[in-house]
């Protein structure tokens, strides 16, 4: 068993290929143009065979695959089971649970339009996120360092902050010239709140002694704010950004119902109404992959910025 560890994904892929090839299909499903699931399995088989072979020579590859092999094998097995339940036996309602072939075929054949949707969603998300994060930092720093800003803005944050951004839709729709700016504003709002709260609470939690030391080293007020307060609060700021990112995804999906021309959330909604569930799943897969890449990127940036934190705190 131990020796076979690196080969588990390969075995699982072979099993799935045998099932897909050997077991007959039920004819309730509309067949896809190509056997895409088989293509995917062959690619996986090839890739993991190479990695398994590599693991005999390269200790890094060995470690990588041995850490993950069980999970990957189980994932392939799960796909195999889905394939059996849908395409082979048709146990689930055909209209809501299309075959894997069909779902992959949408991603492949509809890729231009999906990319266009992803692009416009991305534009909306980044516009909103960028302004929301900047505004969040600015408000957070102001509240953290200025007593009068704290006095006037804090109650505002406490009252307005917890309102879900999407609850503003009725007001936002009549206040903004275009749906794009309206949607971007909603996303910005959803990022702004957690960023502000975590930035200011991060600054409040900076040990006063850091400011005292820096003042005896000759640092002026603004130097203290930006070279002591902000870096010391950085771990909190990243938590705020992280929460903001999650909130922005939710808001994006809702904001795209405000009559945009295209977008990935809009796509899913539209396809759902058309009862095209293969397209819905394709859209969901694309969202999952994209968002998890964005979150991973944020974590990478954090690890780089907070390299000094290693061994201090981890979250």
């Amino acid at each position: 068993m131990k020796k076979l560890n690196a080969w588990l994904p390969v075995l699982s892929a072979i099993l799935a290929i045998l099932v897909d090839y050997g077991v007959g299909n039920i004819d309730k499903h509309m067949p896809a143009k190509h056997p895409y699931f088989m293509y995917l399995l062959v690619v996986l088989l090839g890739a993991f065979t190479i990695i398994a072979l590599l693991s005999y020579f390269n200790p890094k590859a060995k470690e990588w695959i041995e850490d993950r092999s069980l999970f990957i094998a189980a994932t392939i097995l799960f796909l195999n089971v889905i394939n059996i339940v849908t395409k082979k036996l048709g146990l689930l309602p055909v209209i809501f649970f299309p075959t894997l072939d069909k779902i992959i075929s949408i991603i492949v054949e509809d890729r231009d339009f999906l990319a266009l949707c992803l692009g416009s969603s991305g534009k909306l998300l980044f516009t909103g996120y960028f302004f929301g994060a900047i505004a969040g930092f600015a408000t957070g720093i102001a509240v953290g360092f200025s007593n009068s800003a704290n006095y006037w803005i804090s109650p505002l944050i406490r009252i307005l902050g917890p309102i879900p951004a999407t609850a503003w839709i009725p007001l936002v729709l009549i206040s903004f010239p275009t749906t794009f700016t309206a949607s971007a504003f909603l996303i910005a709002l959803s990022v702004w709140f957690p960023t502000t709260v975590m930035t200011s609470s991060g600054i409040f939690n900076v040990r006063n002694a850091y400011f005292e030391v820096s003042s005896t080293l000759g640092a002026g007020k603004y130097y203290q704010i930006f070279m002591v307060g902000v870096p010391a609060a950085m771990p909190h700021m990243f938590i705020g950004l992280f929460n903001g990112t999650c909130a922005s995804f939710i808001t994006l999906m809702t904001a795209e119902m405000l009559g945009v021309k295209n977008g990935i959330g809009w796509y899913i909604n539209w396809q759902k109404e058309m009862m095209a569930y293969a397209n819905v799943y394709a859209g969901l897969i694309i969202i999952a992959v994209t968002f998890s890449i964005l979150i991973t990127l944020l974590f990478k940036v954090r690890d780089n910025v907070l390299v000094w934190q290693k061994g201090v705190i981890k979250w």
Binding site: Y210, V213, T216, L217, A232, W308
Partner: peptide, 19 residues
């Protein structure tokens, strides 16, 4: 007010952990 002319060292070194 505080000045760099009067340097201060605490019991806790208070080094800036991010530097």
């Amino acid at each position: 007010k505080p000045s760099y002319e009067r340097g201060l060292v605490f019991q806790d070194p208070m080094l800036f952990p991010w530097l």
